[in-house]
Computed example of a mutant assay.
Amino acid sequence: MKTYFISDLHLTPSRQDITDCFLNFMETEASHADALYVLGDLFEFWIGDDDSSEFANTIRQAFIKLTDSGVPCYFTQGNRDFLVGKRFAKQTGVTLLDEVAVIDIYGQSAVVLHGDTLCTDDIKYLAFREKVHQPWLQWVFNCIPFFIKKKIVSKVQSDIKDDKQTKSLDIMDVTQKEVENVISANKVDLMIHGHTHRPNIHSFDMNEVAKKRIVLGDWYTQGSVLEFTEQGFELQNRAFGNVFPKDS
């Protein structure tokens, strides 16, 4: 029995190696799991559920095949794919999670989220995030013809890239205070998130109670997977170009 967690794949047509690794993982490993959790930034940027490109449809088909086989798949929106919506969920069979969600993993409660909201020192980004998450603005954007949305997104991506180059790495990491606030508010001992691209398992105490924070890795140079079983969990890598054997 295994449950998998992934995030920060940043899938894009220009990185076929990442896409191939993801599709292979879905076919040979996720298809035999108890569940799959995608904790945001599956895409480099998701322009909207009306994307009918060959690339977008290939990714949809991977999820359709997985959920049709009976494997539940849960999706948390990230800062790159916050426009993944109900239409995508209906098309693929995935279940959209709230921004912060408490789940049960083999009897253990955990809070899962993308992780961008934990980076409270990044004030400029959080202001941008609040703006683009306004329902009325998203509604207007979704009504715009797709080719115009592509131009807008291209400009936004360029601005984001320029902004990141001027920020310190510390600003783009989580703050411990916010981590503890979220854990306390949700009354759990375990947090799982992505976003920071700093895979690690952090252990700390809160009021003399042991807590853990698992950070998922990105897929820029290799696949990164959190494998969770009844016996425990492990952060694992998947080399690009490798074919994973199907579980027996």
Rank of each mutant, 00 (worst) to 15 (best):
H193C: 11
P135I: 02
K187E: 15
A127D: 05
V174P: 02
H133I: 03
T166P: 03
P199S: 03
T196P: 03
L118H: 00
L137P: 13
R213T: 03
N181M: 14
I144P: 13
G115Y: 07
S184W: 03
K164S: 14
D104M: 02
M191T: 07
A127M: 06
V174N: 08
D189F: 13
D173F: 01
T175L: 11
L113M: 12
P135W: 02
D205E: 09
P199W: 13
P135D: 02
S158C: 08
W136R: 12
N181R: 08
S109K: 14
S109D: 13
T166D: 01
K177Y: 08
Q108S: 04
V140A: 14
M172C: 02
P145D: 14
D122L: 01
S158P: 11
I152L: 14
S154I: 10
D122T: 02
T175E: 10
Q134T: 06
S154T: 04
N207A: 09
V156L: 03
F204R: 12
Q108A: 12
K124C: 04
V153W: 11
K124Y: 13
T166G: 02
D205Y: 15
S203I: 08
K151P: 00
E208W: 09
E180R: 06
I105C: 15
I103W: 06
K212E: 07
V156P: 04
V209F: 15
D173H: 11
D121G: 04
A210M: 13
D205N: 08
C143F: 13
S154E: 15
L137I: 12
C143R: 11
L169K: 10
K151M: 02
S203W: 12
R198P: 05
A185E: 10
M172Q: 04
F146T: 07
I152R: 07
S154N: 13
K167D: 00
H202V: 14
G107C: 14
I201E: 12
K164G: 10
I160M: 03
P145S: 10
V140S: 09
E208Y: 09
I105M: 12
P145V: 02
E180W: 11
L113S: 01
T196K: 06
N207L: 14
S184P: 04
I123E: 13
S184G: 08
Q176A: 13
E130T: 03
S154H: 09
S109N: 14
K211E: 10
T175A: 14
R129Y: 01
H114T: 02
I123G: 11
Q134P: 04
V112G: 14
I103Q: 07
D173I: 00
D159A: 07
T175I: 15
G115M: 07
L169H: 15
K150A: 12
V174R: 01
V153G: 10
I201T: 03
K164L: 09
V209W: 15
N186S: 12
V209C: 12
I123L: 05
Q157R: 08
Q157W: 06
I123K: 15
K155V: 13
S158R: 05
H193R: 05
V179I: 04
I183G: 01
D163T: 04
V140Y: 12
T117L: 00
I201P: 06
I183N: 00
D104S: 05
F146W: 06
V156G: 04
H195F: 03
